[in-house]
Write a protein that binds this DNA or RNA. Structure first.
Length: 403
DNA sequence: CGAGATTCATGTGAAGTATACCTTTAGGCTTAA
DNA sequence: AAGCCTAAAGGTATACTTCACATGAATCTCGTA
């Protein structure tokens, strides 16, 4: 029961509360700090490669590899920012579009990627209905209407190619021969080190005119990075002894993932704030660790279409009951059952098979095709997430699907 | 006993279908001269 | 006659279905030692 006075008190208390954050943004993953440590070389190289753009000369296409949280995106964005600032000052017609190919329904097909690029130019493209080459033409029109240089940055490009093949990259690189006034350069960013091995050799050679590999940070480097960001983000002495070290250690264990370390610190801080405490302790880090993983998966699950949720729910229910790996056929039966209960028309087993494969790609489950000899061939499906998380998500799905 | 055939449950590729949306076009209606 | 609106026709992307064939090791079969 909250009366008006109670609520007012709450808000006043909220305002008076001693916030431990000074600038929370400094710990968010899209924050670009003023100085980036341990990546001076990489930045210099990227800058070198892209610099010709300032003279309106087409830079070489660039391909960047490195595991998550090694600063690829950060460095590229940093260089982009500087390039754009300078090009504005010098009146150079340079445009740079950054696209993350992982985003569902934004850049995960050829059509949608092209549409998105056209929209960046201010054009309007319907979600469906146009022929793809029509969208190409529209894009070219915008691009070629005056002399300009375009750099397209495709982040998580491996995901895109995994899903729809490498033809789109071929088309993009070939576009230059159709352009009269303008030119395009591509910058591909991939988490997958062996990604390029499976590319068509023509695409591969034109895309990786230049290559750059980002190696992981070690624990000491992570510490320095964290300390500096923490100083921007938090007020005074709110972080207890050993907290930074612990964050770094956690992240170093995960192949030096700086994004993760920063997130740990941020979430820990938020937990402290919500609990009305004054300092970030070691225990907060543990709690944050669990929360981050949960939230990440909850986000993924929530962004899936209903049929994916139903499938996932069937998998979770069954796995939690059996507590061992399960097979496609069993899931399909359960799934059909739930469809019946929610009044949805069940998809075919063929489609479910694809959905299971996609869920595997998303990292929520592990699905491996095995042959059980005389007893046929199937996918062996296990959870890729801790049981406690699965239970929580399962309850969430249950409510969401009103089961 | 062991090589080769058989079998099962479902993976997987290709082609077809439903849906939702797009542009073009042709006809009909209104309007202004 | 010109201008505008509307509805039909013809087209596309995407998510899904249908059909048909591929897979691969446990199990079976049968000739041989």
């Amino acid at each position: 029961m909250v009366d008006e006075k109670g609520l007012t008190d709450f808000f006043e208390g909220y305002l008076k509360k001693d916030f431990i954050f000074k600038n929370r943004k400094a710990l968010q993953s899209n924050y670009i700090p003023d100085n980036i440590h341990y990546r001076e070389n990489e930045i210099k190289q990227i800058a070198n490669i892209l610099a010709p753009s300032l003279r309106m000369e087409k830079p070489s296409n660039l391909f960047i590899y490195g595991r998550t949280g090694t600063g690829k995106t950060l460095c590229v964005k940093y260089v982009i920012k500087n390039l754009l600032d300078l090009s504005k000052k010098k009146n150079v017609n340079l445009r740079i579009f950054y696209l993350n190919c992982k985003l569902k329904r934004i850049a995960d097909t050829e059509y949608r990627l092209l549409a998105q690029l056209t929209r960046e130019f201010g054009g309007e493209v319907p979600a469906t209905g146009l022929p793809t080459d029509e969208v190409y033409r529209g894009f070219i029109k915008y691009l070629d209407e005056k002399k300009q240089l375009l750099i397209i940055v495709l982040d998580e490009i491996d995901q895109l190619v995994n899903k729809i093949g490498d033809e789109i990259l071929y088309n993009l690189t070939r576009l230059n021969s159709e352009l009269l006034n303008s030119e395009i350069s591509l910058v591909g960013i991939s988490n997958d080190m062996v990604f390029a091995d499976n590319l068509d050799s023509r695409v591969k050679s034109s895309l990786s005119e230049e290559e750059l590999v980002f190696s992981p940070y070690n624990a000491l480097q992570l510490q320095k990075i964290l300390k500096e960001r923490a100083e921007i983000a938090f007020k005074g002495e709110v972080i207890e002894e050993g907290v930074i070290e612990k964050c770094s250690a956690y992240a170093a264990k995960e192949h030096g993932d700086a994004r993760r370390a920063l997130e740990l610190l941020r979430v820990a801080g938020e937990l402290v704030e919500r609990g009305n405490k004054k300092t970030v302790t070691l225990e907060n880090i543990d709690a944050a660790e669990a929360k981050i993983e949960r939230d990440r998966i909850i986000d993924i699950v929530n962004s899936q279409p209903k049929q994916f949720k139903l499938t996932l729910y069937a998998i979770f229910e069954m796995f939690l009951k059996a507590n061992k790996c399960i097979f496609t056929g069993d899931i399909y039966e359960i799934y059909k059952n739930y469809c019946f209960r929610t009044g949805d028309r069940p998809l075919t087993q063929r489609r479910l098979s694809d959905i299971v494969a996609e869920l595997d790609l998303l990292g929520i489950i592990n699905a491996k095709v095995i042959s059980k000899g005389r007893y046929g061939r199937t996918r062996e499906i296990c959870l890729a997430i801790p049981n406690s998380t699965a239970i929580k998500i399962n309850n969430m799905l249950k409510e969401d699907l009103s089961l």
